[in-house]
Amino acid sequence: MLLEMKNVNAAFKVDGHYYNALDDVCLNVNEDEILAIVGESGCGKSTLATSIIGLYNEKQTKISGSIKYRDQELVGTSAQEMDQIRGEKIGMIFQDPLAALNPLMRVADQIKESLTLHTTLSEEQKDLRVQELLSQVGIQNPKRVAKQYPHELSGGMRQRVIIAIAIACKPDLIIADEPTTALDVTIQAQILDLLMKIQRENHAGIILITHDLGVVAQMADRVAVMYAGQVVESGSVQQLFTEPKHPYTRSLLRSMPQADKVRDKLYVIEGMVPSLKNMEHSGCRFSKRVSWLSKLPHESEPQMHQVAEGHYVRCVCWKDFKFSQE
């Protein structure tokens, strides 16, 4: 197993108090596997990513539980040790490529940064590796692009550079946080193909964070759906899309405008994800948002239950759940 997360809690300090943004998250990632994490904004998807890779403010954040990369415990490792893991073993692809790239550095230098840190290559070897990486991510003219600055590149090209940086040291785990949200559909398709190609070549595991269910259906092997800091349903991509169980998963799937059928009204999930301060930490969290859902029988402390091989659902309310229109 590549990454094993057990009972991970992450709490942020707001006005002097700690509030849990992640609650008892248990997830695994295997080699050669794409795990997608889905949910609305504020559900803790990105917090999960930053907890794994250690990109949080230590004074404001408390992480507990266990995150194991192969056999190494990541929770509580020192900043120096984390520097060794980050980039070399775990790579990260960010959502906004313009914000993630240094505007004052040439592309080649930005890629070389992690090579200098993690390898003992000579300057010439590094130059060669940069060219190799840029052509690997599908850039037509790697020699020219290497000398350019981020602002000279298009959005799709920038995202390719970000991917090149993330895979520079051949990490076996790649975390992609909304890698294609800012891109056009055709570019999105190319970037997703590229990610799959890299995954196959390097036998890496990928954690793909997104709110686009179409992307998930095309890419993922397994899916975890998050709501208000908890995983509410997880299973293989076939299970999640053909037999979704949890009311939240089913609501999300229903609210999606689809190109192959016309409906008069889109389904709307009333209300919004509660903010960190107003989040209640007991009971079935999604039922508090949708009023008619709360009348169903719930567990007082909802647990994950296995419903099929590898398919887990939180709480028992899904058994009696029907959309009010049905």
């Binding site: 055709t186 398709a189 992307v215 991509v237 053909t242």
Partner: peptide, 19 residues
């Protein structure tokens, strides 16, 4: 045609064909 084909479809069973 190219634009329409690039929309990610939610049908998991047909994804290989779609790609």
């Amino acid at each position: 045609k190219r634009l329409l084909a690039a929309i990610p479809q939610t049908n998991v069973l047909l994804r290989k064909k779609h790609r």
